[in-house]
Design a protein around this nucleic acid. Structure first.
Lengths: 209, 209
DNA sequence: GAATTATCTTGATGTATGATAAGATTAACT
DNA sequence: AGTTAATCTTATCATACATCAAGATAATTC
């Protein structure tokens, strides 16, 4: 059975009915972003939840003259500035397409409309939040226990082809270091001791939406 | 109207009925932890969600000989090793009482039972996940854009009296540095430039459950 | 309350990453 | 294709934090 990303989530993962899926389709929209276009800009409200059909995005915080990359988003992932989407407050981050990107979108008013129509939609709300949370928990552990090089290896393991889409400048920023340091690390890495033993990952089975 | 933490969440924040609140009470339990007792241990499954009535806890990851503190939990907070609680897999972290602690607990079987009884309980599930997520997002930003001293100031701002309950050793670990470095930072801090300009915080209004 | 243990401070030195700058490689533009 | 612009590498030096070690202070235990 051929399923798109959305069917996969709503029907297979959440076991929502065909009727609910259809209702979602009615309320949802599509968005197309060209390279460097914004899904949301820092300081503005994030009115949409996005599900990536194709493309790549990054979220980042601008502070002074610097950009700090919070996350990358690939095909099949959820993308949203969640705090802003929920609260209607300005987003603390920008989300920008790094490649031509196609999204299924759900506005926050449509999102809230769903909750009014059936409490079963909270299942979807919880799912969104759970997916985002799992992603953040991984990142927290990584910042806490790993050094920059281990974070780099984890990133490559999570997104094996990321370096095809994302410049080293952005990857360094995501890791919390400067691009020159990443370059240095990579050139020295082959000799590096590989004695880091892996933390059991209770999140392993969660998708990285 | 006098409300306990649980009533506050279920009735006021989530607007669940008195009947649902009563049902929650039926299914929930209480737990008492003495200082240094564990809420959950790394490698074991986290079978309970906790809501702190009084006390202080920490969660941490043990890696090799080192401990890395993920979080602190105070009165009114939710406490759980969420990935393990959801999945039934071993927890990647331990959660330990730092003071005598009293909790309201909900087992994962009770939690799932609630979902079976009414989809409205997913509102609660989403709430839990949202609270945890907001906390993680703050921490992510802090690791990404702030240096250790700024993270320290943020921690003190978030939990003004934390130093009364938590040793510097633990605070340093939470910040991702060594206690000696924290000590040094504190002794030098008064001279420090206070030019860090604040990121607009879209999460400001969320509680830190 | 003395002894023991935990916690905190301070100093000397090492290491990883930052800052700056120059050159090399690759991609984008006209 | 040739020019411009973006990206990556490498080198030197600066800084933040780590490591190791010794003492000082405070908390716990007997």
């Amino acid at each position: 059975m051929e399923m798109n990303v959305l069917e996969q989530i709503l029907k297979k993962d959440l076991k929502l009915s065909d009727e609910m899926y259809d209702r979602f389709i009615e309320l949802s929209g599509k968005k197309h972003l060209k390279k460097k276009e914004f899904f949301v800009q820092q300081g503005k409200v994030c009115y949409y939840l996005g599900l990536i059909e194709s493309g790549v995005l990054r979220s980042y915080i601008e502070k002074g003259a610097e950009e700090f990359i919070k996350d990358f988003y690939f095909s099949g992932s959820l993308v949203v500035s969640y705090g802003s989407f929920l609260s209607g407050e300005p987003s603390i981050a920008s989300i920008q397409a790094l490649e031509e990107t196609h999204l299924i979108t759900l506005s926050c008013s449509a999102y809230n409309q769903l909750f009014k129509e059936s409490n079963e939609w909270y299942k979807f709300g919880k799912y969104i939040s759970d997916c985002l949370l799992i992603k953040k928990c991984r990142r927290e552990s990584s910042f806490l226990v790993d050094d920059a090089y281990e974070r780099y290896k984890l990133l490559l393991k999570t997104y094996p082809r990321i370096e095809q889409y994302v410049s080293q400048y952005y990857i360094a920023s995501y890791l919390g270091i400067k691009p020159e340091s990443l370059s240095r690390m990579r050139s020295l890495n082959i000799r590096k001791k590989e004695n880091s033993f892996k933390i059991e990952d209770e999140y392993e089975k969660y998708k990285l939406y």
